[in-house]
Nucleic acid binder design. Sequence first.
DNA 1: TATTGTTATACTCTATAACTATA
DNA 2: TATAGTTATAGAGTATAACAATA
Lengths: 146, 146
Amino acid sequence: MSSSLPDVDFDNLHNLLGYHLRRAQVAVFKDFEAAVGSESITPGLLGALTIIGANEGLSQNMLADALALDRSTLVSVIDKLEARQLVKREKSPQDRRRHALFLTNDGREVLARTKQKVVEHEKKISQGMSPEERAKLIDLLRGLYK
Amino acid sequence: MSSSLPDVDFDNLHNLLGYHLRRAQVAVFKDFEAAVGSESITPGLLGALTIIGANEGLSQNMLADALALDRSTLVSVIDKLEARQLVKREKSPQDRRRHALFLTNDGREVLARTKQKVVEHEKKISQGMSPEERAKLIDLLRGLYK
DNA sequence: TATTGTTATACTCTATAACTATA
DNA sequence: TATAGTTATAGAGTATAACAATA
């Protein structure tokens, strides 16, 4: 049994965007895991995979900027994807400081399969809202960081 | 200089709720830190402090349920608040397995000051939307986890 | 000098499993 | 047996600072 009581007073918490943002993010992350768990891909890894797939040869710094991550953070993201042989780094011939990023064939397959699952996951989590509400939600969320 | 190019292709990422949720959460968390940073209170600590303040004497399990956290996770939250002397644990006389949670006088002061700052922070992050949009956003976020 | 990627390090947030004490 | 809290451990996600190779 749960130990929750029906009468906990939330004070002003329920009027804080930050609070609902965290709750929503945790819930959506969990559902994402359940939906694509068999591929062992997290939202962060999928984001990187998606952008590499659509921009093969881009550098780590470009990818870090696109995902709004620090470049040191991106190193471990790429390390994980490379360890799973979904992505490969290649020295850029134009600028040998850079690593050009590419999907492997495995990476392309996993991305395709995962995309399919993510479409279903997104449909599931937004089943309680209309397409217009979903678009509005995305719009309002963008307003919070752009 | 940034290394971003204007032409990174985001594929379907911009149509995923999960993606915008993460971006928004990171941005809002950062602004929260900047706004209340001088108190060294994170959103999670504030949530706990708020609910304890409005429900003095509640148990750790009740609080964990209210915040949707595991009870082991809550232990470290309370440890941090107690180390800062904002909260105190007391053995419940009714059920000696339980810890009843209370704010200290410091806790009450920090909570009051922080609440004020959070109101300003919330106003700032939602300045781009109308009050109706803000309410709608909260409503839609709730739909994602309830 | 500046940029790209890496490493070392650190901090937050979260959970599962096994434990103690109490009920 | 079951619950409340704790500990040990783990893993995701994030960053800053210092460094080597290259520009």
